[in-house]
């Protein structure tokens, strides 16, 4: 089971979007404000809605918790333009569609369709959203504070703390899992421990280091280690990762890409939003015949208030590629000014 398609109409920056996904790795690129994170948050909300079977959390509620519009008003996510409008969201798998409709002016007018079949199909699904900003170093009492309304974080932060807090004894350590963990440990130089709701890194026999004393890039790798170790990222799960490259030393990107490719081979569907050439290019060159990687470029249409998209199996063949365009400008400047590069 995997997410196969998303249709959006009059939703945030999107006038109309129909995008098909790979069951392996999906790489979303595009300049700021083209809706990469919005796409991932919609998909994540749909996954979480399936996980929440039997609870009060449905698709629309999760959308509100993840997007955090003012006054918890879903209607505020309707694309802003003159006059009233209705936003339509459809998330599809091979077999079912989960739909959501809401109106810009009629706040209570929210319709969710296909929930039961969706929850049936995705029962037991685990989905994880890793936000761009690392949060585990501030985890102590954060969930309680969020629940009490003392601090204002969207649900992706709360959920990732919960996911990372899962008892690490859960889940068998098969050969591949061991391999991933070993490879990540080489980068972090230690393993993750949890004590009194706080995260620590334990390097070998040395005493535990508070997460906030460790470089942010290493913390992100340590988080991935923890999610693999505790069984969150296993066959049939979905991983959303917003800007994995943020604060990570580029020399660690190849190892990170190896792990992402192995996870998708093991049946984890992955969505990544990135601005990084190195990450995108490594995903292109390191994939093997069995890997499924699809690149999606989101771009603004000049003089029109809308975002369009194209998908391609090759990063190099995207005709609207903001990452390579930016590099090209820099390299041409170096060339024309005869500067050292």
């Amino acid at each position: 089971m995997a997410l196969t398609k998303l249709s959006l109409e009059k939703f945030t920056v999107f006038e109309k979007l129909d995008i098909e996904f790979s069951k392996g790795i999906n790489v979303l690129i595009g300049e700021n404000g083209t809706g990469k994170t919005h796409i991932m948050k919609v998909l994540y909300s749909a996954c979480q809605a399936a996980q929440a079977k039997g609870t009060a959390i449905d698709f629309s509620t999760k959308m509100i918790k993840v997007f955090k519009p003012d006054d918890s008003g879903l209607h505020r996510l309707v694309k802003r333009e003159n006059g009233a409008g209705t936003a339509k969201v459809k998330v599809c798998s091979d077999h079912h569609t989960l739909s959501l409709e809401f109106h810009s002016r009629r706040k209570e007018n929210i319709s969710v369709k296909g929930r039961d079949a969706w929850q049936e199909e995705f029962a037991g699904l685990t989905s994880t959203f890793i936000p761009a900003k690392e949060i585990l170093s501030n985890s102590h009492n954060l969930i309680q504070a969020i629940d009490k309304g003392n601090v204002d974080f969207d649900d992706t932060y709360k959920d990732i703390i919960s996911a990372a807090s899962v008892d690490i004894t859960k889940g068998p350590e098969g050969g591949l899992k061991k391999k991933y963990l070993k490879s990540l440990q080489k980068i972090t130089n230690g393993t993750v421990s949890i004590k009194n709701e706080e995260f620590y890194l334990k390097p070998g026999n040395q005493s535990m280091l508070e997460f906030q004393l460790i470089a942010e890039g290493i913390r992100k790798i340590a988080l991935l280690w923890q999610l693999i170790k505790n069984g969150t990222l296993e066959n049939g799960s979905v991983l959303f990762w917003d800007e994995p490259e943020a604060n990570i030393n580029p020399k660690h990107i190849p190892a990170l890409v190896d792990i992402l490719l192995n996870l998708q081979s093991d049946g984890v569907q992955i969505f990544i939003a990135t601005h990084d050439y190195i990450l995108a290019k490594y995903l292109e060159i390191k994939r093997t015949g069995g890997s499924s990687v699809l690149f999606h470029s989101l771009y603004k249409i000049e003089n029109e208030d809308r975002v369009a998209h194209e998908s391609n199996q090759n990063f190099r063949d995207l005709s609207n590629n903001v990452i390579t365009e930016s590099f090209n400008v820099l390299l041409d400047e170096i060339f024309n000014n005869d500067m050292e590069d």
Partner: peptide, 15 residues
């Protein structure tokens, strides 16, 4: 795996 960026890096080095 050639792309515009690696070609331009190559161009700048040879230049």
């Amino acid at each position: 795996h050639a792309d515009e960026i690696t070609r331009k890096l190559l161009r700048n080095k040879i230049k």
